Simulated scan of single mutants.
Amino acid sequence: MAKKTNIEEVKSEIELTSESNMIEALKYYVKTIPISERMNERAVVADFVTNIGEEKLLSNLKPPEVGDYSQQITSRMANTDTQSRLASVKKFLGFLHNNELIKTDLNIPSHLRSKRILTNKRTKNKVSTFEEGPKLTRSRYKTLIGQLDKLNKQKMDLAVDIQNAAADGDVRENAPLEAAREAQGMVMAKITDIENLMRGAIIIDDGSQSLLKGKINIGTKVTIENQNNKEVHSFQVVDFHEADPLNSKISSESPVGKAILGKAKGEIVSVKSPSGTLEYKITSSSNR
């Protein structure tokens, strides 16, 4: 008879699902850890669970909450302690992710980031900064997942086309085969681009978890008024990876984006342009 793994042994005692809460997940997880490590790991993960909320359902765990915890820890602890604590919490989140107890499409464990120390070459001063992946709005992330599904289906269909074309004759002079291979290469390149963009992406959960509540942030929908000619422009501020001016999505790295980040409704900002400095009044902003 095959020996049960630690997880299987725990499952026979406790039933854990995505509708279980954080404290139940902690009790479940601790029993999968080697006894010699349990006391320390339980204390560290318990601090994370308390911070997030013991009664929060696993299915409701959001990336911004995990990111906020990272910033809180790194701001109050030494770097070596931070690395150790975040590594323990990341194991816990990885356990939940791998067992599909939290939303796997949000890549939640990747949002637990530590500070890295950068040295200014001129001053030799050390500056702490967060390692960050691309910031994507939730709607953009879902769109990318849909595109990825379609591309993977196309890849499978093209593999069949290539197999059929190769069976038709001389592969050296086989136009259908070459066309299918070329199409497959383009599809694979698109898949790679999307996967690289999504890997480690920070999902912006509009409004509720913003560190700048009431302020304009990535994901905020904004309306501004040109103070000279009174023209009105409405758009959403997004990470540069998903900027699409034709669909009213401007990059946070653009002149206007930089000017309005962190600002609030009613404020007037100055934006440098080839024709001179322009002033815009923020007439509305919404994170919904």
Rank of each mutant, 00 (worst) to 15 (best):
M1L: 10
K4D: 12
T5V: 05
I7R: 14
E8W: 03
E8M: 07
E9Y: 08
E9I: 13
V10N: 04
S12T: 13
S12H: 09
E13V: 14
E15D: 10
T17L: 08
S20P: 02
N21H: 02
K27Y: 10
Y29W: 11
V30E: 04
V30W: 08
K31S: 06
P34I: 05
R38C: 10
V49R: 11
N51K: 14
E55T: 15
E55Y: 07
L58A: 08
N60C: 10
N60W: 01
L61M: 09
L61H: 03
K62F: 10
P63F: 04
V66P: 04
G67P: 00
Y69D: 02
S70R: 02
I73M: 08
T74L: 12
M77Y: 12
S88H: 12
S88C: 14
V89C: 01
K90M: 09
K90S: 07
G94K: 07
F95S: 02
F95D: 00
I102Y: 01
S114V: 10
K115G: 06
K115P: 04
I117V: 15
T119Y: 06
K121M: 11
K124Q: 14
K126R: 15
F130L: 14
E131A: 15
E131M: 15
G133P: 10
T137Y: 05
R140E: 14
T143Q: 14
Q147Y: 08
N152V: 04
M156A: 15
D161T: 05
D161A: 06
D170I: 03
D170F: 04
V171I: 14
N174Y: 01
L177R: 02
A179S: 13
G185H: 06
A189N: 12
K190C: 00
M198N: 02
R199L: 11
R199W: 07
G200R: 00
A201P: 05
A201L: 08
I202T: 14
I203T: 03
I204L: 11
I204V: 15
S208D: 15
Q209K: 00
K213V: 07
N217E: 15
G219H: 04
E225W: 02
N229A: 04
K230T: 14
E231L: 07
E231K: 13
E231P: 05
H233M: 11
S234I: 00
Q236K: 12
V237R: 06
L246G: 08
N247W: 00
S254E: 03
K258L: 13
A259Q: 08
A259D: 04
G262S: 08
G266Q: 08
E267P: 14
T277V: 15
L278Q: 15
S284R: 11
